[in-house]
Amino acid sequence: MRSKLFVPASRPELFDKAMASEADALSFDLEDAVAPARKQAARDALAAWLASPAFEAGQARHAKKIIVRVNADDSPHFAGDLQALGGLPIDMINLPKVEHADALQASVDQAIAAGFAGEFLVTVETPRALARAAELAEAHPRVAGLQLGLADLFEPLGVDRYQPETLRAVMLSLRLGAGCAGKYAMDAAYARVGDAEGFRAESRLARSLGFLGKSCVHPSQIAIANEVFGFDADEVEQARRIVAASRRHEGVGAFLLDGKMIDAPFVRRAEDVLRAVGAAA
């Protein structure tokens, strides 16, 4: 999931266009992008599209991961989201404003009871949630990963969201928290749509810290995310050589390849690269 494009669920005229994009995943937003008075209309529009022949045909051509960001579990809209969308072809529910593992467990269980068969992506967007990132990642087996939400995390505290040294510390903390449970981390959205180089630089920082991909708020950001979070031919070939060498050295704890010591963590990373490339293909 190199790129995840946010699509307001209140804008059905964008649904088919988003499906035809190069994004790996589409994240239909019922939360911040939809005014309270339009919540039900957005649910109805998204549910109708997900049940339509147009969606089925689009999936056959483009094979997108379908994500829905629902409203927070303590909002008056959460239950309505689950009621409207349960049982539809949704791969992942994005749970926002999560701070406590027990509340997360309850939300996941409630969504499963409503008919959701997929995984869950948890947005970390408060200081308390960041401090408890590992607990949130471990809260339920169906939690697949953590996503960074920087606007809600930084704006109330007056923190400059675009300072790389600040971002590095927060990104690393989230990635290590997700890693405690063997889960992945997704990077935050970048609101400066016209700043392609800024988006690229932030994507590269996230990639260097082990993030899986980045959220996009405009189609122009998709190609950059796919490029930065993809694997070039040299990386893939090196991963293949490491995996092949590990099989030749089966039963040996560590071995040399091209003058570098290779042991279990390097082999696991190489296997992850090959799995990601296979999934993208």
Score class of each variant (00 low, 15 high):
Ala137Val: 10
Ala181Gly: 14
Gly182Tyr: 09
Asp160Leu: 00
Ala131Cys: 07
Thr166Arg: 13
Glu135Val: 03
Glu135Ser: 10
Met171Cys: 12
Ala178Cys: 12
His140Tyr: 07
Ala144Lys: 12
Pro164Ile: 01
Met186Asn: 14
Glu155Met: 11
Val159Gly: 08
Ala169Ser: 07
Val143Pro: 03
Pro141Cys: 09
Pro156Arg: 00
Gly145Phe: 06
Tyr184Ser: 10
Ala139Cys: 06
Glu138Ala: 15
Ala134Trp: 05
Val143Phe: 08
Ala133Gln: 03
Leu136Ala: 03
Leu148Gln: 03
Leu172Asp: 14
Thr166Trp: 14
Ala139His: 08
Tyr162Phe: 08
Leu172Met: 12
Gly177Ile: 01
Leu136Asp: 02
Ala185Phe: 03
Lys183Ala: 12
Pro156Thr: 07
Pro141Tyr: 15
Leu130Met: 15
Leu130Thr: 09
Ala134Gly: 08
Arg132Cys: 06
Ser173Lys: 14
Ala178Lys: 10
Val159Lys: 01
Gln147Pro: 00
Leu130Ala: 11
Val159Ala: 06
Pro164Tyr: 03
Ala169Glu: 14
Gly158Pro: 01
Ala134Phe: 02
Asp152Pro: 01
Arg142Asp: 10
Ala139Leu: 07
Cys180Ser: 15
Arg142Glu: 13
Ala131Val: 01
Ala178Val: 12
Leu146Gln: 11
Pro164Ala: 04
Leu176Asp: 08
Leu174Phe: 11
Gly177Ala: 01
Glu135Phe: 07
Gly145Ala: 07
Gln163Cys: 03
Pro164Glu: 10
Leu150His: 02
Ala139Arg: 06
Cys180Val: 12
Ala185Glu: 05
Leu130Arg: 12
Gln163Glu: 15
Arg161Ser: 15
Leu172Cys: 01
Leu148Arg: 02
Lys183Ser: 06
Gly158Cys: 03
Leu148Val: 05
Phe154Pro: 01
Glu165Gly: 02
Leu148Ile: 04
Ala181Asp: 10
Glu155Trp: 10
Gly158Lys: 02
Glu138Met: 11
Pro141Val: 10
Leu153Gln: 00
Leu150Thr: 14
Leu167Trp: 04
Val143Ile: 15
Glu138Asn: 13
Ala131Tyr: 11
Glu138Gly: 04
Arg168Asp: 13
Ala185Tyr: 05
Val159Gln: 07
Arg132Gly: 07
Leu176Gln: 13
Ala134Val: 05
Ala144Thr: 09
Val170Phe: 13
Gly149Met: 07
Pro141Thr: 11
Ala133Val: 05
Gly177Tyr: 00
Tyr184Leu: 07
Ala151Ile: 13
Met171Pro: 00
Val159Asp: 08
Cys180Ile: 02
Glu138Val: 00
Ala131Asp: 15
Arg161Thr: 14
Val143Gly: 02
Leu174Ile: 05
Gly145Thr: 04
Gly149Lys: 04
Val143Ser: 07
Tyr184Thr: 12
Leu174Val: 05
Leu153Pro: 00
Phe154Trp: 11
Tyr184Ala: 10
Arg132Asn: 15
Leu146Thr: 12
Val170Arg: 03
Leu153Met: 04
Gly145Arg: 04
Gly182Cys: 02
Phe154His: 09
Arg168Met: 11
Asp160Arg: 03
Asp152Asn: 14
Glu135Lys: 09
Asp160Trp: 01
Gly179His: 10
Leu167Ser: 04
Glu165Ala: 09
Tyr162Ile: 00
Thr166Gln: 12
Val143Met: 06
Val159Cys: 03
Ala181Trp: 13
Pro141Phe: 14
Ala185Asp: 05
Met171Leu: 09
Ala185Cys: 08
Leu172Pro: 00
Asp152Ala: 08
Leu157Pro: 01
Val143Asp: 07
